[in-house]
Amino acid sequence: MSEKLTKVEKEPMFSSKILKLLKNPFNLENPITVQVLGICSALAVTVQMKPAIVMALSVTIVTAFSNLIISSLRNTIPSRIRIIVQLVVVAALVIIVDQVLKAFVYDVSKKLSVFVGLIITNCILMGRLEAYAMGNKPWPSFVDGIGNGLGYGMILVIVAFFREVLGSGKILGMKIIPQFLYDSGYMDNGLMILPPMALITIGIIIWVQRSKTPELQEK
């Protein structure tokens, strides 16, 4: 008991409020399935796990740091050019991420192609900047960014998991469906690789999530 207390006093950085910021985006406030933000740019990269994971990390980094920067600047930004300032900060971060990817994980960056650039117009970024970072202190905003980025990434990875397993029988490029299944007539479902199945997979994820948490259901 006392140990717990001292821990909390020592690390006020991780108060329960902050932890909530980190946890909520995974379920009750998931950016994709509940807030309907940022579906745009990233679904096309969910054919395989690896690009999806890299994309998820990139988005998390960009959301976290743009939240941090905008939140620290929030009292100095002239409201009339607010959106432009946000766009410039986001675009600069995305360019940096793109350059780093090109330098260190060249093959993945080739696969992601234009979709890294499209992080700029990912609604999660602008949405979180407007809704959270403009009105909160830097540290909570940073955590909010990480939470939302990861919540978003989680959906990407789940979608990519199903598409890769069912579509090409692999996880992260490794065959996991045993050969004897193929021999006895099992076939990879080519439809899973095509873009429409990403949408339907998300539809099903939403279905599952809302059956479990009825308060999210729409009338």
Partner: peptide, 23 residues
């Protein structure tokens, strides 16, 4: 429509089906 699927969920699925049609 099943309650949990209403709204957003069914929209995704419809879009997916339309995308298949467009293919």
């Amino acid at each position: 429509i099943p309650k949990p699927l209403r709204g957003l969920g069914i929209s995704f699925i419809i879009t997916g089906l339309m995308a298949i049609a467009f293919m």
